[in-house]
Structure formats: structure tokens, C-alpha cells
């Protein structure tokens, strides 16, 4: 059982470019799904207009109660049966975005619901329009409250990119699989990749805590 740790290091270039693609996909999907999810959360929270509420609710429940892999296969293999085909990359980004948006919808909805009614009333009595009240008063506080959940879902999103390795998307996990099939140095390669992912996760959590402390908590301490 000879472990050759030089192998992954020799191929660090490929691993890094896989990691880069992972990062790109994660970023695009994160921003898009957060935006889409917030829109959904508004509909889910206000429950109006009724038709949109029902449609969004169906969307959210389906995405949250079926596995990512099934959604991916459905889009990549199933939908072309109806005539629309997707490239592996497009299917991956689409599914990840929609999936994550459903979770962000519920996260943001929870955040909005946790804002005391008095904030809405104060905004109303100050003649703020519902839109302004939401954007200036409610939403910033909802984001603050939901911040840990938002960061957690981002981590899950990044893990979700590994599922894309099933299709022809050369992100980190697939790069590792390919290297593995070329050399069979499984333990070394996957250990490396595992530490990669772990480093990313730890980094995000660290950043989250820092941002949280700097932005939010500083406003709370009594002088």
C-alpha cells in the first residue's frame, strides 16, 4: 500500500482548474438563486396574487422534496424528449439555481416572518410605500436574521456542484474522477479533494462570522 502523495501535487493544475469551475458555477448559482429565492419568498409571504402563490408553492415543494440528482437527470435526459435540449453545463447551472432558489425562498420567508409586526406598522405610519418598506426596512433585517442560513445553503450549493460531475462538467469532483480513472491513485486524489472542499467550507464560514460581526453585531452593543 504505497501512497504516492506526489501524484495529486503533480496534477495540481488540473485540480485547480476544476476548483475554479466549481467556484464559478457556485457563484453564478448563488447570486441568481438568492435573487430568485427572495422574489419567491415575497410571494410566499404575502400569499398574493393567489395564482402566483400556488405556482410558486408547487415549485418550492417539488424542488425541496426531490433529490438534486433526479432533478438533474430530469432536465438533462427527460426534457429533451419534449424537444428542448441542454448542454451539461447549462443543465447543471439551471438545476442548481432552481433547487437553491427553492431553499432560499423558505429561508428568506422565515427571515421576513421573524420581523416584528411593529416594523411594518412604523413604516406604514411613516407613509412608506409597501415596496419601499420592504426594501429599506424589512429586507435588510431579514437578511441579517437569515444570514447564517444563507451561508449554510451556500455551502450546500457548493457541495451540490459535485453532483454535476455525473454529466460532462469538468468541475472539481469530475476532475478527481478522471484523474482517478487514469491513475487509480484514489486515496491520494480524493483525500486532496476532500481537503480542498473542507478548506472552502471553512473559509466561507470564517468569512460569514467576520462579516456578521463587522456589519451586524457592531450595531447592537450598548455604548
Amino acid at each position: 500500500m504505497f501512497l504516492d502523495w506526489r501524484y495529486p501535487i503533480d496534477h495540481i493544475g488540473e485540480l485547480l482548474s476544476g476548483a475554479l469551475l466549481t467556484a464559478q458555477i457556485s457563484l453564478i448559482c448563488f447570486l441568481t438563486s438568492l435573487f430568485l429565492g427572495t422574489l419567491c419568498s415575497i410571494v410566499r409571504y404575502s400569499k398574493k396574487p393567489k395564482v402566483l402563490y400556488i405556482l410558486v408553492s408547487i415549485f418550492v415543494e417539488i424542488m425541496r422534496n426531490t433529490p438534486l440528482l433526479v432533478q438533474l437527470f430530469f432536465v438533462f435526459f427527460g426534457v429533451p424528449q419534449l424537444g428542448i435540449s441542454f448542454s451539461p453545463w447549462a443543465a447543471g447551472v439551471l438545476v442548481l439555481t432552481l433547487n437553491s432558489a427553492a431553499y432560499y425562498s423558505e429561508i428568506m420567508r422565515g427571515g421576513i416572518q421573524s420581523i416584528p409586526k411593529g416594523q411594518w406598522e412604523a413604516a406604514d405610519s411613516l407613509c412608506l410605500s409597501k415596496t419601499n418598506a420592504f426594501i429599506r426596512v424589512i429586507f435588510p433585517q431579514a437578511v441579517r436574521d437569515a444570514f447564517p442560513s444563507i451561508a449554510n445553503q451556500l455551502v450546500l450549493l457548493i457541495f451540490g456542484t459535485s453532483v454535476l460531475s455525473i454529466l460532462d462538467v469538468r468541475e472539481l469532483t469530475q476532475t478527481a474522477s478522471i484523474l482517478n480513472s487514469q491513475s487509480f491513485r484514489s486515496m491520494e486524489i480524493f483525500t486532496f479533494v476532500m481537503l480542498f472542499y473542507y478548506a472552502v467550507t471553512a473559509l466561507i464560514l470564517l468569512l460569514t462570522r467576520l462579516v456578521y460581526k463587522k456589519w451586524f453585531a457592531s450595531k447592537i452593543e450598548r455604548r
Binding site: F159, S162, T173, N180, F190, T191, Y197, T201
Partner: peptide, 13 residues
């Protein structure tokens, strides 16, 4: 801190 799929691959391979 890492995806389930990586863990599966790690043991499987």
C-alpha cells in the same frame, strides 16, 4: 466539510 459524493468515491475507489 465535503460533499457526500466525494466520501462515496473515496471509499468505493
Amino acid at each position: 466539510g465535503c460533499p457526500l459524493l466525494i466520501q462515496l468515491f473515496m471509499v468505493y475507489f
